[in-house]
């Protein structure tokens, strides 16, 4: 994983669950919740778990007000771009609107080599169920964020109804996207309860649904 990994995607694509899983697995220094769109199921709802794991959570300037609906982002969110010793994961809000918040960091980014901007896709979301739609939404995000997407994450799932055939179907579509945009598939996400028999493109993340399970 690169020093800074930014996770983007359509809302409901699974960004926050992937971010939190990666953050705990790699014990990053910072997790930055830039989602100012979603009112529920946000990365910041795990603030205690991050604190216990020694991961610094950056959220709103008004901390631990999980129920606030105010689009504040703490200035701390720029720190990992400035201090090159730190590792960090950034969780964006959904769709291209969620990417717009990245523009504020553009004058602070000088080493594009340490930064991955990964795009999460679940082909069971209607807005990202074809190659053309995915390519279009990636281009929209890049325009809004003023950054190039560097890789794809296959998070194809229907929650508890997911099968390996579905994930493979997602992989087929994403392979075409990858070819068209000259991008790698960096990760494939498989829920921890699914018995994995097949091999997949990129590294496999065995996902725990940490945020949703806290609610439901």
């Amino acid at each position: 994983m690169k020093r800074i990994t930014i996770i983007a995607g359509h809302y409901g694509s699974g960004k926050s669950e992937i971010c939190t899983n990666l953050a705990f697995k790699h014990k990053v220094d910072y997790i930055v919740d830039l989602d100012i769109i979603n009112p529920y199921f946000r990365t910041r709802s795990l603030h205690q778990e991050f604190e216990d794991a020694g991961i610094h959570l950056v959220e709103s300037t008004i901390k631990k007000k999980l129920s606030s609906d105010l689009p504040y982002i703490s200035g701390e969110s720029a720190i990992p771009f400035l201090n090159k010793e730190l590792t960090a994961i950034y969780d964006l809000g959904g769709t291209e609107n969620g990417g717009r918040v990245l523009i504020q960091f553009s004058d602070k980014i000088d080493h594009f080599e340490d930064i991955d901007l990964l795009y999460v896709v679940n082909i069971f979301r209607m807005e990202t169920n074809t190659v053309a739609k995915i390519v279009k939404s990636i281009k929209n995000l890049e325009n809004e964020a003023q950054l190039k997407v560097t890789g794809l994450i296959n998070n194809t799932n229907l929650l508890k109804e997911t099968t390996e055939e579905m994930i493979k179907e997602g992989e087929t579509i994403l392979t075409s996207v990858a070819k068209e945009l000259d991008l790698p598939i960096v990760y494939t996400v498989i829920h921890e309860s699914l018995d994995q028999q097949k091999d997949y493109s990129g590294k496999v993340i065995r996902l725990k649904r940490l945020i949703a399970d806290k609610f439901l």
């Binding site: 529920y40 929650l159 109804e161």
Partner: peptide, 10 residues
């Protein structure tokens, strides 16, 4: 309620 509005399901 808000949970039905915000949750995801097939």
């Amino acid at each position: 309620d808000g949970l039905i509005g915000q949750m995801m399901e097939p």
